[in-house]
Design a protein around this nucleic acid. Structure first.
Lengths: 123, 123
DNA sequence: CGGGATCCAGGCTGATACTG
DNA sequence: CAGTATCAGCCTGGATCCCG
């Protein structure tokens, strides 16, 4: 509605259970092959990895380089445009870390952030 | 895993279909009653509004002031701590706006960001 | 008025199997 | 190796009804 609301768009790019982790790997490791990403993120399935990578690619955050050969080889990297996200990502991360601190002060150390979304709260 | 990954935590607070809109309203209007929020966000159900407000409350972003009277009255506002989010929210928003621009340049004006998540892409 | 409790549908996620 | 296809389960979000 209002223009301010557009920050939902920013979130669209980051949501999806695995996007943060994927971006982390690519930001710190630079170019990575599909299989390297799989190894780096053991719990992710091929399907999810592919899917999230495609979304990031569509948003021009991640570049996909295909080498037509046998066996196939595909490399992923952060685009120049994507690198512009680093600042925000870092800010978001810093705030997240500080926020965990804040929650610790409020509720003590034995809390789980994840457990406190929606209906899990009142149990 | 790594400390950098904690920015997922930041996202936890923002995700949920309605949190951005709710925060927007509270940031711009200041203190609001439950019913005012409902009117301001016509499409949201009570359940969702309550649920999202409770999560924001747990995270100390939103304050809930209850007036024990008949009829009941409950007011919501951004906490002092919550106001510290304004910067990040603004940054996120600015990036989101710019990103829409970027996507327009890439794909033209007739695209839908929302339609390009997950499986909707390849249709 | 401001919720809580239930029930239900759809989408996202995950596991598995198959392909170029 | 790097995916695609299919199917199943869960969880989020929505609708409705009830309560103090």
């Amino acid at each position: 509605m209002s223009t301010f609301c557009k920050f939902e768009t920013a979130l669209e790019i980051l949501v999806g259970k695995w996007k943060p982790v994927i971006l982390l790997r690519l930001f710190s490791n630079g170019t990575m092959r599909f299989s390297e990403l799989q190894k780096a993120i053991p719990d992710i399935t091929k399907k999810m990895l592919t899917q999230q990578l495609r979304e990031l690619e569509y948003h021009d955050i991640v570049h996909r380089e295909i080498y037509r050969q046998i066996p196939p080889k595909v490399e992923y990297s952060i685009t120049e445009y994507g690198k512009g996200m680093a600042t925000i990502l870092q800010a978001l991360n810093d705030w997240g870390v500080a926020h965990i601190e804040h929650l610790n002060e409020l509720y003590g150390t034995n809390h789980s952030v994840e457990a406190h979304r929606s209906d899990a709260m009142d149990k």
